[in-house]
Structures are given as structure tokens and as C-alpha cells.
Simulated assay, not measured.
Amino acid sequence: MARGRQRVHAIGRRPNHNLRRPQHPGPFRRSVIVSLMDMKASASPVLEKMLYRYPISLDSQRIIRILGVPYDAVFAFIQFLYSSRSAVSSREGEEAVEKYGMHLLVLSHAYQVKWLKRGCEEGVAARLRVEVVVDMLKLAKLCDAPRLYQRCMRLVAKDFASVIQSEGWCFIRRHDPLLEKEILQFIEDADQRRKRWMREMADQEMYQQLSEAMECLQHICTVGCTVVGPHVGEPPSRSKGPCSFRTCEGLQLLIRHSATCGKKLSPGGCIHCKRMWQLFQLHSSICDQPDSCKVPLCKQFRSKIQMDGKVDKTWRLLVKKVVTAGIMSSLAKRERPEEIQKIWLRYRGIK
């Protein structure tokens, strides 16, 4: 129970002197916590209404019964009401949240102490374990704790094989099929999001390679590289070091094959020559200097597009994504702060 003093002369005392804890409360003895009425009323709107609703006893005190939680949890809750909002992050506050985090979360939700509820929610979420994650998930739904709910769901999806062996999972399978369905739906959605993210990352890597291949093709046809390209005397890469493009070697093999292949004019054609043809066409769609461009067939492809007057939507989308990947790559090569670099690596899926 918690009592609130109504005497005016007790309001100015220090919070530590306003709390009195019984030394040896017996198992059948009612535990009493004496506290100031005005302090609790200002901390909780629910307690304020309860304090003024209950009648005054003979010794000018009001009695509020807080049932369903341990006495020490109630004592810690009253201490938090007397403390500042930063008390949750203190050493004593963290110890109290570690011992009675679940009970403090329930009390702060029931009595609408929002700042304490946020602190308890973060503390309970930071100490989640697989054995009790289902119970904490149920508690998060009852106490309207979205952060704790999301953390529980992520832990369930991460280690579902261990969760299904816990007692909490067996309980909800027998008594709460709606929560079981909600958990299974979340796991399925998380798996779909992971697969979709992996596909998007694979597509992004493909567009990145195509953008780099366009730069490499421009480089080979302009200044030359190793044994391919318009160079005089010693090949450029032998005098300037290895090429910096990852796709350079494969692109040179395609160019050399396309120059000597005898199947490119046959009815079935050659798959490697068709791939080289598509790269030339992609370059012509991206090139912004067609008059001075030295890449083969660049002008011819652009003239054909202008004569036809329309471009396939799929091809237009491919060109747009390759251009976007090239812009993102150029931005990534610039010097940037360490935090932005970490975000970019996380976006690329690199730890």
C-alpha cells in the first residue's frame, strides 16, 4: 500500500526522508509505504484522481492499495516518482529495472507515468532472453509498449527454433491462437523482406557492374588497355600499372572474341557476341557525347533509336537504373565522414 501525507509542513522535506520502509514485514503483515500526496499527484494523473477520491482517515492520511506486484517493486516505483527523470539511467535505477523491470513497466503503464514507462521499456528490451521472450511479447501488447513489442518480435524471428521449445510458446499455442498467428505472420513477412532485400542487393550489384563496364568500355576505346584499344607502342597498362576496373579483363575477352568470332553472322548467332552487342547498345543509350565518342556503333545505335521513335519500357528502365548506379558510385568515391561511410557500407550489405 502507499499512503499520501496531506500535511503542508511535510511537502518541503527531502524525498529520501519522506519514504519509510518497514524493517521486518511479515508474510501476513500489510506493508506500508508513507509518501507525500502532492509529490505523487504531480507525477501521475491516475494517482492524483485516486488520492482525491479516497476518504481521509483520522490521522489525515489517504490509503491506496497497490496489489498484484511485490512490495519491493512498489517501493522502487514510489522512489522513481520522487526522483528526476534521469534516475532510470543511474546505477540504482538500472539495478531496480533489472530486478523489477516487468513490474515497474506494468505500474508505470497503469498509473500513466510515461517517462518511467519509456525507461522500463528500454531496460526490459535490453535484457530480453529467448526463454521469456513470448511472455514479454504478451506483456508488451497489454502495456502498449511498441518498442518492446518490436524487439521481442525480432528476437522471435531470429531464434524461432529455440522459442518454440519455451514454456511461453506452448502456453500461447494452447490458449492464445491469435498471438501465435500474429507471430507466425511476422516471421513470414520478415522472411519475405529478407529475400526481397537480397534480390534488390543482387540487382544493385548487377547495375553497379554494368555502370562500371560502361566506364571501362569508354576507357578501352579511348586510351586502350593492355592489348585492346587504340594505343601506339607499349600497352598503357604495362607502363601505368594494372587497370582499376573490375570488369576490364572480362570486357577485353568479349571484345577480342567478337572481333574474331565466325558465328555472329550465322542464323543462331553467338551468345557472347550478342552480349557484346547489348553492351554497345547500352553505351549508346547512356553516352552524352555521341559526336566525339570513340566506342564502336555508338552513333549507329542512336540514329536507329531516333528513326524508330520509341524505346522499350524495360530497356528504358534498365538505362535509368544503370545511370543511377553510376551516380551513386561516383558519390561513394568522394571523401566523406566516417559515419556516412558506415551507412553506405551498410546499404551495400558490407559489414
Rank of each mutant, 00 (worst) to 15 (best):
M1P: 05
C120A: 12
I343E: 13
A259D: 14
F171A: 10
L251K: 06
I220Q: 00
V322K: 02
D72C: 07
R3G: 05
M39D: 12
Y149Q: 13
C143F: 00
C243S: 05
F186M: 03
G309D: 05
K114L: 11
M276D: 04
I11M: 09
F80K: 08
G326M: 04
S44Y: 01
Y347G: 05
R129D: 15
Q278S: 14
K114N: 10
C273L: 02
M206D: 12
A145E: 00
L142V: 11
V133D: 05
I56H: 02
R7S: 14
C273A: 03
P337E: 07
Y207K: 03
L137S: 08
C120F: 01
G4S: 09
Q204A: 13
D72M: 09
S303F: 04
F171I: 04
L47Q: 03
S329I: 04
P25C: 08
A259T: 09
I33D: 04
V130R: 03
L104D: 06
Q289F: 11
K141Y: 01
S31G: 00
R127A: 15
N16Q: 11
G269A: 03
E48W: 01
E188F: 10
P290Y: 02
D176S: 13
R275C: 06
Q61V: 11
V88Y: 02
N16A: 09
C270E: 07
R13W: 03
R256T: 11
K138N: 09
E249G: 10
E215S: 14
M136K: 11
R346K: 08
G68W: 03
R91A: 15
C293L: 07
P22V: 06
R7V: 10
H272D: 11
W315Q: 14
A125D: 03
P25G: 10
L318G: 01
Q192D: 08
I33V: 15
I78F: 05
S83W: 06
Q23I: 10
M50Q: 14
L139M: 11
D308I: 12
G101W: 00
I305V: 12
G224D: 00
M39Y: 08
K181L: 14
E94L: 14
E95H: 08
G224P: 00
K310L: 07
F280E: 15
Y71N: 05
V88Q: 03
Q218E: 07
L179C: 11
R91N: 13
H231Q: 00
Q209K: 07
Q61H: 07
K40W: 13
R129F: 08
P290D: 07
L139H: 02
V132G: 09
K195A: 15
G119W: 02
L36P: 05
S60N: 15
R127L: 14
L116F: 04
Y207Q: 05
R151I: 02
L282A: 03
H17A: 14
R7C: 12
P290T: 07
C170I: 09
L155D: 07
A213D: 15
A41F: 01
R7P: 03
V8R: 12
P15I: 06
L104H: 05
T324N: 13
I78Q: 05
T314I: 08
G229F: 00
F160M: 09
R14Q: 09
S244K: 13
R30S: 10
L67M: 11
A325C: 10
P290V: 13
Q306R: 15
P230F: 00
Q150I: 12
C216H: 01
L105I: 04
L251A: 06
I350D: 08
G268C: 11
E131Q: 14
M206L: 15
